[in-house]
Amino acid sequence: MQRVNMIMAESPGLITICLLGYLLSAECTVFLDHENANKILNRPKRYNSGKLEEFVQGNLERECMEEKCSFEEAREVFENTERTTEFWKQYVDGDQCESNPCLNGGSCKDDINSYECWCPFGFEGKNCELDVTCNIKNGRCEQFCKNSADNKVVCSCTEGYRLAENQKSCEPAVPFPCGRVSVSQTSKLTRAETVFPDVDYVNSTEAETILDNITQSTQSFNDFTRVVGGEDAKPGQFPWQVVLNGKVDAFCGGSIVNEKWIVTAAHCVETGVKITVVAGEHNIEETEHTEQKRNVIRIIPHHNYNAAINKYNHDIALLELDEPLVLNSYVTPICIADKEYTNIFLKFGSGYVSGWGRVFHKGRSALVLQYLRVPLVDRATCLRSTKFTIYNNMFCAGFHEGGRDSCQGDSGGPHVTEVEGTSFLTGIISWGEECAMKGKYGIYTKVSRYVNWIKEKTKLT
């Protein structure tokens, strides 16, 4: 034993070699072989497995989906700052455009905790909710729209109204504003409101030439003092309507412009014939205590009207009353817009006519005020429907199939267009061939041609 100890002390290297040989010859039971080890760690190889990531292109799944990435790591994937920024906006807080917040056709661009709407022409605001041009839906104005110097929408209202708090709607500024039905039992019968379409306001006024200088022999019209197929109006439903009495009662109609003036057809009036105007009328054979009678003290036909040349060209006249009318729910003026808007309103496509005229061709006159909704007829169809001249200051309205029309005794009465609950004068009943005849239409004086003249002559002093 002493000898062994001496050998170990003198030859430590020998001992180490012996131990190493023993270990190498022993069977290893701690580690699995290569094949079995792979069965336990069965993990798919990654895209760049075996390579240094710093030297390969980034992978979106590896960089940002398996674990949260930084902007720089995302930049490695896209290799483009702009594309990385677009991805980053949604990656950080989701897609803010998912709810489609942009209105009126706006395009949404996502941002971090926010979004941006790219608005089409005519709109602005956070969600493109603000109209900035009158060309689109009248700028959301209830009545009139004008573009300011910086191309912003400025709404306005006709006389007797003021802008509401929203700067879009119009509200009454006087007790009985024009064009409004205020009798409670008839307010439910107000005709369907007309909503502004998209309009090209630059070209809204037709490029028409008034044929002022045409000389033409007097034409022989049949029954051209021209509501057939209409309905009984309720008291106060058309408070701007008046009836004219002269040699015979209810020979023509008219509309209240203001307390002192009536507008009617020029062919209705004769110099030297006494005319009485009755406002607030409903049943011409009954006294309903809503009527107001006034005498006409002055007749002003349009300066281009000449019955000797043509009885229905420039067929418009103004009547001055001896005493002002007292405005109330049964006696209310009709609204008159400017030339541009009167023309736009007419193009809405349908209007209402009213009167006490004959209820059928050569038949009896109506006792109760009649009204009828009539569609506008395109000019080409209008011209083809008659052998008589249709001037540019006239328009056609009615039904091709016949059966409904204005008729004798309705002449001078109103053709009105309702705009968001307020009625505007767009025409004056003038003439036609018979009444409600198939293929024939009622012919009306186009008020847009005469609004400046009306307003100039009827100013209240």
Rank of each mutant, 00 (worst) to 15 (best):
G398A: 05
C69P: 00
E165F: 08
P239C: 01
G409F: 10
E231Q: 09
A173M: 12
L14Y: 11
S169D: 10
S49K: 06
T218H: 08
E401C: 05
L19D: 02
A436Q: 12
A26Q: 02
K438Y: 07
F424T: 00
H282L: 12
V77C: 06
P324E: 06
S406W: 14
T209L: 14
G403K: 13
V154H: 08
P120N: 12
I299V: 08
Y330D: 04
H361M: 11
Y312T: 03
N304P: 02
V181N: 07
G21S: 14
P120W: 04
N113T: 12
C117Y: 02
F221I: 13
F55Q: 15
V183S: 12
L103Y: 12
L23C: 11
S182V: 09
G412M: 15
V228A: 14
N258I: 00
N113D: 13
V273K: 12
K109R: 10
T386R: 08
E418A: 10
H302E: 02
N310M: 05
E281N: 06
T290A: 06
E124D: 12
F55T: 14
P375C: 04
V227Y: 10
Q408A: 07
S11H: 14
I210K: 08
A307P: 12
T461E: 12
D93G: 13
R191G: 14
G351P: 03
D198E: 14
W431N: 13
F87E: 02
N42L: 09
V377Q: 07
D200Y: 07
H302W: 06
R43Y: 01
A250S: 12
K68T: 07
K45H: 01
E98W: 10
Y352Q: 03
L325S: 01
K293C: 05
V195P: 11
A265P: 04
A397W: 02
C102A: 02
I40G: 06
I334T: 02
V416Y: 11
D95M: 08
V92S: 14
T332D: 01
K89W: 05
G421I: 03
I7T: 13
N104Q: 05
I112A: 14
Y115F: 12
C117L: 01
T342A: 06
N151S: 10
F238D: 01
T215E: 06
S430Q: 06
W453M: 01
G21F: 13
F424D: 01
Y305V: 02
E67W: 00
G179N: 01
G125C: 02
T225Y: 11
V368N: 07
A337W: 00
M394L: 07
Y371E: 06
C170Y: 01
S99P: 11
T29F: 09
F360V: 11
T264W: 01
S11C: 13
M437V: 14
L346G: 03
V278S: 07
G272Q: 08
K362V: 05
C141G: 00
W88N: 03
M65W: 09
R83D: 10
D223T: 13
S184L: 14
T276C: 05
N80Q: 06
H34V: 14
Y341Q: 14
E418K: 08
Y371C: 05
G439S: 12
I136A: 14
K168T: 06
I428Q: 03
V263S: 02
R358F: 07
L52Q: 15
V269F: 05
T426E: 01
V4C: 13
N310C: 05
A279N: 00
F424V: 00
K311Q: 06
D322S: 07
V368A: 11
S204W: 09
G272M: 07
L20F: 14
N100S: 14
N203C: 04
Y115M: 04
R162M: 10
T276H: 07
P101F: 05
Y444G: 03
L211D: 12
A9D: 07
K362I: 04
A9T: 13
E420L: 11
R3H: 11
Y391E: 14
K89A: 12
I390T: 09
F144P: 00
S107H: 09
